[in-house]
Design a protein around this nucleic acid. Structure first.
Lengths: 169, 169
DNA sequence: TCCGATTAATGGACTTTTGCAACTATGATT
DNA sequence: AATCATAGTTGCAAAAGTCCATTAATCGGA
């Protein structure tokens, strides 16, 4: 069971009766809160794996592995970060030997990103961890409920980042 | 429609066919991503309102309004933040005249937080904004789907922060 | 009733992130 | 060729979060 860090300092009794006011019915509140919790938990699970600390390294690694030659600006858009923030992530990952940059043949302003052997190995290592962590984090959801969440949140996500909606099978 | 900031720099074509690898089915990925987007959007909507920049000020304000004398450590637990981080939030809000600290009658180590007139007025102002923003952010969800998300995510949230589960009506 | 352990709140120093704006180089437009 | 837009980059400064130590008060025995 995933629990809040240690700091369970406050008397459990004290918190049990706290109402969240209107936030009780505010979806974004739960998203913001759960984000913190789930991100921390993931960091722990990934501890030592060179991609810890969620700055988008995981997404970058997987996307580069999946799409050789992808541009950093595309990744930036998907992870909703500034281009300049992406540069730093790529810098770091290049130093770590996880990927390489190479100028695009057609457009010399752009450069494609390519995974290295080491990067691919890492990607293969973390894929199952990431998937498992996410599922394990929500033990109180049935598989169906879990799928429902992915479907609904994915819909909004795709709209926002400009990805086409999934065709309803 | 909520869209990503301005920076729609990249050619829409380039992004349309990008697959997210395993992240496609990772709930935490959507939560992390949407968190960024929804938080930014809220900041914009709240611009100028003294509680912008999501450091938990909104939650703090609403909770203090709802629960006079609540302790900062309880709020810290609910917003999943370090106690020392809470101190700074409370400091700031006290300076802004939104709330006051007063030693607890029963336990002199603790201090309760109390809202001021100004704080209450602000709380009344932002309540509808927060609720509306959250709903508007998910225009592609039906009311029922929206309720479903709140129910499911709320369940996990409550478990994590140690709030009792909602009795199924 | 005194001592040690515990808890609440706080303060300080530190590291990490991040967002913005400016800059270069290349490509596109007219 | 002149102008404008775009990809990537860099530096800077603000903001956030973490870690650790400190103060003060309470509680539980011996």
């Amino acid at each position: 069971m995933v629990q809040l860090k240690s700091k369970r300092s406050t008397d459990p009794e004290a918190i049990a009766h706290v109402g969240l006011d209107v936030l009780e019915n505010v979806l974004s509140y739960y998203i913001r809160s759960l984000n913190m919790a789930v991100s921390r938990d993931l960091d722990e699970k990934l501890d030592g794996l060179e991609v810890a600390k969620g700055t988008g390294k995981i997404t970058t690694l997987l996307l580069v592995d999946r799409h050789p030659g992808i541009r950093s600006s595309v990744i930036a858009q998907l992870v909703m970060r500034d281009r300049s923030a992406m540069v730093r992530v790529v810098d770091q990952m290049e130093e770590q030997g996880l990927l390489t940059r190479r100028a695009d043949d057609e457009d010399n302003r752009a450069q494609g990103l390519f995974i290295t052997r080491k990067g691919r190995e890492l990607a293969d290592r973390i894929r199952p961890v990431v998937v498992k962590q996410s599922r394990d984090f929500f033990p109180d959801l049935s598989d169906e409920e879990h799928r429902t969440l992915i479907t609904l949140l994915g819909r909004t996500y795709r709209r926002i980042v400009g990805l086409p909606q999934q065709t309803p099978a």
